[in-house]
Simulated scan of single mutants.
Amino acid sequence: MKEQLIGYTTGVFDMFHIGHLNILKNAKSRCDHLIVGVSTDELVKQYKNKKPIIPFEERIEIVKAIKYVDEVVPQISMDKRQAWENLHYNVLFHGSDWKGSAMYDKVIQDLEEVGVKVVFLPHTHGVSSTLLADVLYKQQAEEFH
């Protein structure tokens, strides 16, 4: 019997948009079981120096409802090797916008040691939660002036 291919991907998933859906759909098409780590509010504050617009409890419920997702876990650390030790996934999926970054070069190296493949999926250009937040803030500012 063939071993089940377990995939893992992570994200903040703030203001869920088509780019998020594309990553999850693409990742699920490449594995048997997809685990998604949703960044906690505390982790986002730690590495992005900002608070998500949508609270963690709501973001995790949104991701749980996506048909391509088999399991959802809180992401409490950026350490993908530590996540592997808990989840034992075979492949890590991430958006191609991080390919070649120093952070992901280290992730690749750390995961190769335990036989995990890192696959970069196409980034959906022209949409991001940061861009959406900026547009909303601008619209709010214009309405109040």
Rank of each mutant, 00 (worst) to 15 (best):
W84E: 00
E71D: 14
P52V: 04
D105K: 15
R59T: 03
V116F: 07
Y104M: 08
S77I: 02
I66Y: 13
D105I: 09
H88C: 05
I60E: 00
A102W: 03
N90G: 15
G95I: 14
I108Y: 05
E71A: 12
K106V: 10
V69A: 11
V72Q: 06
Y104W: 12
I53D: 03
Q109W: 12
S77G: 08
P55S: 00
Q75C: 06
K67I: 12
E61M: 13
Q82I: 06
R59A: 00
I76M: 14
G115E: 01
F93G: 12
P55D: 01
V63G: 06
K99M: 09
V72S: 09
K64M: 12
N90K: 08
V116W: 11
K67A: 10
K106G: 05
S77M: 04
L111V: 07
E112L: 06
R81Y: 15
V69D: 06
W98E: 03
S77Y: 08
Y89L: 06
G95V: 10
S77R: 04
V116R: 04
I60V: 13
W84M: 07
M103S: 12
L92H: 06
A65N: 14
A102K: 15
L92P: 03
Q82F: 13
I54K: 00
I62D: 00
D70P: 10
R59Y: 00
D105C: 08
L87M: 10
I108W: 03
I76V: 13
I53T: 02
Q109Y: 12
K67Y: 14
Q82V: 10
I76L: 14
S77F: 06
E112C: 02
H88M: 07
Y89R: 07
N90D: 15
I54L: 02
Y89V: 00
V72I: 10
P52D: 04
D110V: 04
K50F: 07
V114K: 04
W84D: 05
D105W: 01
F93T: 13
K64N: 14
L92R: 05
A65L: 14
V63L: 09
V73D: 11
V107A: 02
D105G: 03
P74H: 11
Y104Q: 03
G115F: 01
K67F: 14
K106T: 12
F93V: 12
D97N: 13
E71T: 11
G115N: 01
I76F: 15
V72N: 06
W84C: 02
V73E: 13
I53K: 03
K80M: 14
I54Q: 01
I66C: 13
Q109L: 13
E112R: 07
L87T: 05
